[in-house]
C-alpha cells in the first residue's frame, strides 16, 4: 500500500467499496455520500476504488457484433431513437423506417470507408471533404430561440440530400405539431412538412429536393404561425 495514503474511516470501509461498485442504495447510499462530502480520506478512498471498478470493465473480452451493427446504430441515431427509461431497447422498427434514412446512413458509412479522407474540423460544425473530393458534406446548425439552443438541424448533400431536425427542449405540455420550413438563397421560403413533438422533444427528417448549398436557414413554426426556433445553415 502506498505509505502516503490517508487512512479512511474504519467504519466506512464496506460502504465505500459498495458505493464504488454502484451497488449501494437507499439510506446507506445517502449516508456515505454525505460522509464522503466532508471526509477527505474517505473521498480519496472512494476515488481509487471507483477507478478500479471502472478498470474492471475493461477486462471484459471483446467480441465481434453481428454484421451490420454499426449501420443499425447510425440508423437509430439518425432516426432520433433513444433508450427507453427502463434501459431496455425499443422494439426494432426497421421495416417502418423510410428509405431516405437508409440512404443517409449508407452515405455516412460510405464517407467513412473512404480511407483517410474524412477530416474532423476543429473550429466548425461542418465535416467538409478535402478539395476535389465529391463526398457528401454534412452540416449541422443549432436551432435557437433568443440565443438558447433548443435542438439541431443537420443537412447532408450527396446522391440523396436530406435534412434532419432534432428538438431537444422546446418546452410545452403534451404533444403538439410543428412545421419545418427552409429559407433559400434569394429569401424564398419552402415548407418541408410537419412533425410532432412530445413533451418538448422530437425528431424528423425529409429528403431535400433543393441542393444543400441553396439552403440558408431553417425554422420551426407553431400551429399559430409563430416562429418557435430558427437555425442558420
Amino acid at each position: 500500500m502506498r505509505r502516503d495514503r490517508p487512512v479512511p474511516c474504519p467504519d466506512r470501509h464496506d460502504a465505500l467499496a459498495e458505493l464504488a461498485l454502484g451497488t449501494l442504495a437507499g439510506q446507506e447510499r445517502s449516508d456515505i455520500l454525505a460522509h464522503v462530502a466532508r471526509c477527505h480520506p474517505c473521498a480519496l478512498e472512494l476515488s481509487e476504488l471507483s477507478r478500479i471498478t471502472d478498470d474492471l470493465l475493461q477486462l471484459a473480452p471483446a467480441a465481434n457484433p453481428p454484421a451490420g451493427f454499426e449501420l443499425r446504430v447510425v440508423e437509430r441515431v439518425l432516426a432520433g431513437s433513444t433508450t427507453a427509461p427502463t434501459g431496455l431497447p425499443r422494439p426494432r422498427e426497421r421495416r417502418r423506417r423510410a428509405s431516405w434514412r437508409l440512404a443517409a446512413v449508407a452515405a455516412v458509412l460510405a464517407a467513412v470507408v473512404g480511407a483517410g479522407a474524412a477530416v474532423l474540423a476543429s473550429s466548425t460544425t461542418a465535416s467538409k471533404p478535402p478539395p476535389g473530393a465529391s463526398r457528401p458534406v454534412t452540416l449541422s446548425a443549432s436551432l435557437t430561440r433568443h440565443g438558447r439552443v433548443l435542438g439541431h438541424v443537420r443537412v447532408s448533400s450527396g446522391r440523396t440530400p436530406w435534412l434532419f431536425v432534432t428538438v431537444d427542449d422546446l418546452s410545452g405540455p403534451g404533444s403538439r405539431t410543428v412545421a419545418c420550413e427552409v429559407t433559400l438563397v434569394g429569401g424564398t421560403t419552402e415548407k418541408l412538412g410537419r412533425f410532432r413533438l412530445s413533451q418538448g422533444y422530437g425528431s424528423w427528417g425529409v429528403p431535400l429536393a433543393a441542393p444543400v448549398d441553396s439552403l440558408r436557414g431553417a425554422i420551426l413554426v407553431g400551429s399559430d404561425g409563430s416562429v418557435l426556433a430558427s437555425a442558420r445553415i
Binding site: 457484433p65 451493427f69 454499426e70 446504430v73 447510425v74 441515431v77 439518425l78 455516412v108 458509412l109 464517407a111 467513412v112 474524412a118 474532423l120 460544425t125 465535416s127 454534412t138 449541422s140 439541431h152 443537420r154 447532408s156
Partner: peptide
C-alpha cells in the same frame, strides 16, 4: 451531429 465521427467511434469500440 458529425455522423462520420460517430461511425468511427462506433467502429473503435463496438
Amino acid at each position: 451531429g458529425d455522423e462520420r465521427a460517430g461511425v468511427v467511434f462506433v467502429r473503435r469500440y463496438q
